[in-house]
Design a protein around this nucleic acid. Sequence first.
DNA 1: AATGGATACAACCGCAACGAA
DNA 2: TTTCGTTGCGGTTGTATCCAT
Length: 370
Amino acid sequence: MGRPPCCDKEGVKKGPWTPEEDIILVSYIQEHGPGNWRAVPTNTGLLRCSKSCRLRWTNYLRPGIKRGNFTDHEEKMIIHLQALLGNRWAAIASYLPQRTDNDIKNYWNTYLKKKLNKQAQLQTDLDGHDQPRDHGFSSSHHSMSRGQWERRLQTDIRMAKQALSEALSPDKYSKSPDDIHHDNDDDQDLMMIKPSSSTGPCPKPEARTSSSSSTSIYASSTENIARLLKSWMRNNSSKRSGKSSSSTLTQSTSLSNVGNDSASSEGTPSTTTANNKNNSKNNNNNNGIDLSEAFESLFGFESFESSNNSEFSQSNMSPEASLFQDESKPDLGGQLPFSLLEKWLFDESISTQGKEQLSDMILDENANFF
DNA sequence: AATGGATACAACCGCAACGAA
DNA sequence: TTTCGTTGCGGTTGTATCCAT
């Protein structure tokens, strides 16, 4: 067929996004809502392909994203869900609403996989030649007889099916007491348990968001950018104290342009930084404040300092922001309601045997059974 | 202080699924 | 039914940062 690529290879910028680009993108989405990504580069003048814009939004700028510092609970969830679903990161991410699939994938690949491998190795060492008890990272089934392995597999499948059917019956849904997104926002919970539109694409944003959407919708997203900017300025300063790169200079310049265009023009961050190389620490603070002012001016939200929180809690999200989050992370078809699954995964009342069997699930072999 | 390996994370690429015409 | 455009997803890569030597 010779379908053309989604974007021209020439004239399309690659690599890290600059704060200016982020601002442009967020501004555009603020006006038009996410979606119709094809039109985004054209309408914004961004030299990025539509895919890149979408990715940037969903993985970084989207409201309600929590970054770094996975909690134990999240970690356990990921481990179990990975055992259950395999490398279906989007599906896993749908149970961790504050995390992106990319984030989870990275966390798994860079940390969890190794950690579990180590544990498995340790267990193997301790047990002599016994099979590792961990989550299927080793060829545990090789060390048991085929009959044993098949029986266990059958049990695993039965368990999973049972859990699925239980979970899918709506009247059984009940909120788990230790719901990890214990935020106040009932809408959020509702979103998670609503029958999903499944694997189908989420409804067109235009249909759900009016163009007159409040700016508060984007507050958390702006906070994301603000946070990014802050760390960027910090990095920039420290870099400048050492070496200066042309790309950072470009970023500064463009950033200051943004400041001039859409925010107060007093002491643009870039010039401040550039002029005070010897005082980078102080400048960081100043820059952060300047930027925050610029953002407040640009997006009309306050309390930039809240973006200093190491983790942006979803509880800070407005319902509208939650809506966006839902938009960007459509539920998967026939997926278990979160708390039910969670309950199933972590309920202490679950039998030890059942737990063992669950955690012994073999990833690849079981991943396709659903 | 310099260096090289390890780690973390953002972004890209290619493919598949889906919907509209 | 077929074709084509768009979006979503998972694997992979590139690069910045950290840390031990």
